[in-house]
Nucleic acid binder design. Structure first.
Length: 570
RNA sequence: GGCGCGGUAGCUCAGUUGGUUAGAGCGAUCGACUCAUAAUCGAUAGGUCGGGAGUUCAAGUCUCCCCCACGCCA
């Protein structure tokens, strides 16, 4: 038995995520966690909401709520949706937790002790009406170059000229519209990532088994231009982890908070502490400290490609810089983007399907299956309603659902709702066992390598083997002349349903649970030995005929949904 | 403009270190079966592997140039 620490990129608190976000991190992470648990490994699967930063403050202001209340509510909303998609987090934490505050401050203090933090004095625009410093993108005005009236503080979107906020004519805050702005000096802390560049490069180079997508992005950031740049890790905001040096005040940093990208990945660690504090487990350091039992842990992270630089460089720099025995990631699985019907998903334009809407249309298994079997692993992938309809109807309803239906109903009508007795294996059964064994071993290999699409294809092929067997051996014909052999064939097929449930559970947990319940068993053991697994349900064992596992998506539904989620045009 | 990931059957994608007639699923056509959600199973058709040049006994696979799509950056 091995130990697997698994984390999904933590979704930002602001708003509900779309299907592309889901398939890029949480869903494949859940697949992997469920598989590893099914194989008997010890798993700690963590995720959380990323709650700090300006967007959360603004969203709260728009909702007319204190930011802490807003985040608490949105955390509950996201937690409920995650439950709806059957994401099996051992804990769904919050980056605003007291545990993360303390740990983030401890990391910063330690990095300062190691000489890896320096102070930088900068000039920044302060809005008197808003009572705060403004990030460049929250300042707008008229471009001095082209006269465009909605140029941003960092760049004019019309003529693409690089700007300083002070260049803008009639500069104003996009928060309050106030033009009462002034430039003030402010001090910030920088993490000296550049000093860790060689260590990071050596570490990345040692990861020869990582996906090309992951290492190519990391190396680009490491080597492009002047190489890895030091990074500001503080901001002049109210909402965030107060800047402290461990437990002590940090002179000159009063009223400042850590930048969201500094504290967010530390939440991966703090989340384990939250998990223990919530009474869900014990000894969290056993997962995170190699001096306290985590040396045998395999740590796998899942994320979209936009998160790769932070997970391959910034966060490892934070950990390495402490020279403390924190667990570093062993494998980073990154994903490309899922597009929606020829374009991008867009929150602002209401384009594409969002997680809450998806669950209103269909149960989570439909989405899990389609998204995982089309996961954007090698390149961007595309969601279309046509493929969603044909693929889920074919794979789930026709191939798997109908298999369960035809086997259980045939048995009920010709024998009874007990597993029938009699008959002996022949050549066909020996061959089936051999074929199943080959395919199940291939499935395991793909799952362990987090080759999501290949695993899905293999699972589907395993389902097809059942239909092939029935078609070739036709128990409905056999039954007319040789009831005993027909009984053996259908006993095998009933056992196949249990095996399919166990194998399929990581992809479609609800349908798998229905299948297990229908077979009236509690035995969810993995079919390591296929021949033995086919005798789990003995003759005389009672079962029930379940409702159809999956219904089909109609053409009318497809058309209606395609129209409903097309979004507004520019 | 620079960089990155791609461009393989109508569609979605596999193709390891270059090596026999380029694969799978869907869709299409034909056939078989009738237990089952008008489900299933089999067979067939369909590709100058983006274009060009080169290296090699041999290139989808390596090198160079170009074209296209997407993304990131400036």
């Amino acid at each position: 038995m091995a130990r697997h620490l698994i984390t999904s990129a933590i979704p930002y608190i602001n708003g509900i995520k779309h299907l592309g976000n889901l398939v890029g991190s949480q869903l494949p992470a859940d697949l992997f966690a469920r598989y590893m648990r099914a194989r008997g490994h010890e798993v700690l699967f963590l995720c959380a909401t990323d709650e700090h930063g300006t967007p959360a403050e603004l969203a709260a202001a728009k909702a007319d709520k204190p930011v802490a209340d807003y985040c608490a509510e949105m955390h509950d909303v996201q937690a409920k949706i995650a439950e709806g998609f059957r994401l099996s987090f051992d804990h769904f934490g919050r980056s605003s937790s007291p545990q993360n505050k303390k740990l983030t401050q401890a990391f910063a203090g330690r990095l300062a002790d190691m000489g890896l933090i320096r102070e930088v004095t900068e000039e920044q625009v302060y809005s008197i009406a808003d009572g705060r410093f403004l990030p460049d993108r929250y300042i707008e005005g008229t471009c001095p170059n082209c006269g465009f009236t909605s140029a941003r503080g960092d760049q004019c979107d019309n003529c693409t000229k690089q700007l300083d906020p002070t260049d803008l004519i009639d500069a104003h805050s996009t928060i309050s519209e106030s033009t009462d702005l002034e430039v003030r000096e402010t001090k910030h802390l920088y993490l000296c990532q550049s000093e860790l560049k060689d260590d990071l490069a050596a570490w990345i180079d040692s990861k020869t088994d990582w996906p090309i997508l992951t290492t190519s992005i990391a190396k680009k950031w490491l080597n492009d231009g002047d190489g890895l740049q030091d990074r500001g890790i503080t901001r002049d905001l109210d909402w965030g982890v107060p800047v402290k040096r461990g437990d002590a005040e940090w002179p000159g940093m009063e009223g400042k908070v850590f930048y969201v990208w500094f504290d967010a990945p530390i939440e991966y660690i703090a989340c384990a502490q939250e998990w223990e504090d919530a009474g869900k487990g014990t000894d969290w350091e056993r997962w995170w400290r190699t001096d306290k039992g985590a040396d045998d842990v395999t740590y796998t992270q899942f994320m979209g490609k936009d998160n790769v630089p932070f997970h391959t460089l910034s966060f490892p720099a934070t950990i390495m810089g402490t020279q403390e025995p924190w667990k570093l990631v062993d494998y980073i699985k990154s994903f490309n983007y899922l597009n929606y019907d020829g374009g991008q998903f867009s929150t602002s334009r209401g384009r594409g399907v969002f997680m809450d809407q998806a669950l209103e249309l269909l149960p989570s298994d439909y989405w899990r299956w389609w998204l995982l079997s089309h996961a954007p692993e090698s390149s961007d992938a595309e969601f279309t309603w046509e493929t969603f309809q044909t693929d889920t109807n074919k794979d789930l309803a026709d191939v798997l659902g109908n298999f369960v239906s035809r086997v259980t109903k045939f048995c009920r009508s010709k024998f009874s709702e007990d597993v029938p007795a009699g008959g002996a294996y022949g050549e066909a059964e020996t061959q089936l066992i051999a074929d199943l064994t080959t395919r199940i071993r291939a499935y395991e290999t793909h799952m362990e390598a987090t080759e999501v699409r290949k695993a899905a294809a293999e699972l589907r092929a395993i389902w097809v083997l059942g239909n092939e067997y029935l078609q070739a051996n036709a128990p409905w014909t056999t039954f007319k002349t040789d009831e005993e052999t027909a009984a053996m064939q259908i006993r095998l097929a009933l056992n196949l349903i249990r095996i399919y449930a166990v194998l399929s559970a990581p992809f479609i947990p609800d349908a798998a649970a229905t299948m297990i319940a229908a077979m009236q068993t509690t035995d969810e053991s993995w079919p390591t030995d296929v021949a033995a697994a086919l005798e789990t349900l003995p003759a005389g064992h009672a079962f029930t005929v379940p409702e159809n596992l999956f219904r089909k998506i109609t053409d009318d539904e497809r058309e209606e949904w395609a129209a409903r989620f097309a979004g507004t045009r520019d």
